[in-house]
């Protein structure tokens, strides 16, 4: 079976004034199903840019990207949005829950966009799995950072995507919560989900199957643990 994500020589640069910043350069990376991979590197090394490109949040300048057998080059913007919601769940450092919606409603939101009504049982099951089911009726403002991130993970799982992309998901959490979140990712990977996490934490990266390190937009290390 072929890999879930196949990136070949992808590059992305940004213009800042007259200066061109090569955020990632010539990156080739294959990620298999059920793999839990961490991306490390100094600030500005290109972690977020790489995740954004893989998640189709940013268009690549060159190279090719094949997601679950589909070359994204052939897709329109609308088709990419649809593919994104089928394939990917996103977890942000700052959670980005909608403050006016309850935990339950935040998890239900991807269903609204996908035009699928998610069952009550399904949503409660997800909240249960991440350990915040008792908080289902609370708004983000009434929850702790750890709880908000769990709700965000439940939201990422709402449409049961094969890939979870998380950018510094523990950046705003204390050690205990950070470990709990990684534990959750571990569990999801064992269920066959592909997990890609950008992190600054050496310790947490060790829990992953594989560590990729970036420097100045290039891969300098790619090791299995």
């Amino acid at each position: 079976m072929s890999d879930t994500i196949i990136a070949k020589g992808i590059s992305k640069s940004f213009k800042r004034g007259t200066e061109t910043i090569h955020a990632i350069q010539d990156i080739s990376l294959n990620i298999g199903k059920g793999e839990m991979l961490s991306i490390m590197g100094r600030s500005g090394s290109g972690k977020t840019t790489l995740l954004s490109c893989i998640g189709m949040l940013e268009n690549i300048d060159s190279g090719s990207l094949v997601l679950e057998g589909r070359n994204i080059k052939d897709l329109s913007e609308a088709q990419r949005t649809i593919l994104r919601r089928e394939l990917m769940g996103f977890v942000f450092q700052r959670f980005f829950l909608i403050p006016t919606l309850t935990a339950y409603e935040n998890v239900a939101l991807p269903g609204l966009f996908a035009g699928k009504k998610l069952g009550k049982d399904h949503i409660m099951e997800l909240l249960e799995m991440v350990g915040v089911s008792q908080r289902y009726d609370h708004r983000p403002g009434q929850m702790s950072g750890g709880e908000m991130q769990r709700v965000a993970i439940a939201r990422a799982l709402a449409l049961d995507p094969p890939v979870i992309i998380a950018d510094e998901p523990t950046g705003n959490l204390d050690t205990a919560n950070a470990e709990a979140v990684f534990g959750l990712f571990r569990k999801l990977a064992s269920q066959g989900k592909t997990i890609i996490i950008a992190t600054h934490s050496q310790k947490l990266a060790k829990d992953c199957d594989r560590v990729v390190e970036l420097m100045d937009g290039r891969i300098t290390r790619d090791e299995k643990n």
Partner: peptide, 16 residues
Amino acid sequence: SKEIGMMRTIGATPLQ
């Protein structure tokens, strides 16, 4: 705008 961008990320089309 952040919230709207987030909705786009998690699968909302511009039309939605």
